Computed example of a mutant assay.
Amino acid sequence: MSSEHMQIGEVAARTELSLRTIRHYEETGLVIPSARSQGGFRLYTETDVARLMVIRRMKPLGFTLDEMRDLLQAADRLDAPSRLDEGEREALLERVRGYEAAAAQKIEDLRVQLSRAEEFAATLRTRVEQAQSART
């Protein structure tokens, strides 16, 4: 086995994804192991790990598997060694820009949620402190 290939356990540790999740992403076609060992074990490369990291970052933002697939396909086409005509390159870049804008909006939405959650926790802290001081 080449040192550049990793088994699924190492990939899971590096990406902080479960084996089950990685296998699910394989079943859905998001990440296909680059090779198999003679014993049939999945073998992954740094490129595969990078793809899984993209997926891991998109998931908590609420992107769907189809959206993940679409972004990965656009990135693959942009990174491919074959030449793209200017129109195709711009269309792919526009797709990626759309995901960038969607991610920025989702991040802003999460900031609002976090702020509300912090306000709620502070309100509860104040209530507990008031209740404790009233008893003494």
Rank of each mutant, 00 (worst) to 15 (best):
V112M: 09
E90Q: 08
A121C: 12
G29K: 00
H5W: 00
M53V: 07
T15W: 00
T21C: 10
D109M: 12
G40Q: 07
M53F: 02
L19R: 14
L84N: 03
L124W: 12
R97Y: 02
Q73E: 15
L78W: 09
A80W: 08
A121M: 15
S115V: 02
R77E: 15
E119P: 04
M6N: 01
G62F: 05
H5N: 01
L17A: 06
M1N: 03
S34Y: 00
R135T: 09
A101E: 10
R135P: 00
V112G: 06
T15Q: 01
V128D: 11
E86P: 03
R83D: 14
E46D: 12
D48S: 05
E67Y: 00
L19M: 12
L124C: 13
D76Y: 03
E108H: 15
A131S: 13
M68L: 04
A13S: 14
A101T: 10
T136C: 06
L52K: 06
Q132S: 11
L114M: 09
A131L: 12
L78H: 10
Q7D: 00
A122P: 02
L93V: 13
A74M: 05
I55M: 10
A122E: 14
Q105C: 05
R111I: 07
Q38V: 03
E27S: 13
R69S: 14
E90N: 05
A74C: 06
Q113M: 09
V49S: 03
P60S: 04
E90H: 02
E4A: 06
M6L: 07
R77Q: 13
S82Q: 11
L93Q: 15
Q132G: 09
P33R: 02
A102S: 08
Q130A: 13
E100K: 08
R23T: 08
A117K: 14
A131H: 07
E100W: 04
K106Q: 15
E100D: 12
L92H: 03
I22V: 12
R135E: 11
L71F: 00
A35R: 00
E119I: 08
S18W: 01
G87M: 06
D48G: 04
A50H: 04
S2Q: 11
R56H: 08
Q73D: 15
E16W: 01
A35S: 08
I107P: 12
D79V: 04
I107L: 15
T28R: 12
L93I: 13
D66M: 09
L84Y: 02
R51M: 04
I8G: 04
S133Q: 14
E27F: 01
A13W: 04
A91N: 02
A35C: 01
I22A: 09
E94R: 07
R23W: 04
K106Y: 13
D85G: 11
Q130L: 13
A91Q: 03
D66H: 09
R36T: 03
I107Y: 13
R14H: 09
A12I: 02
Q113C: 06
Q132K: 09
E88A: 11
Y25T: 10
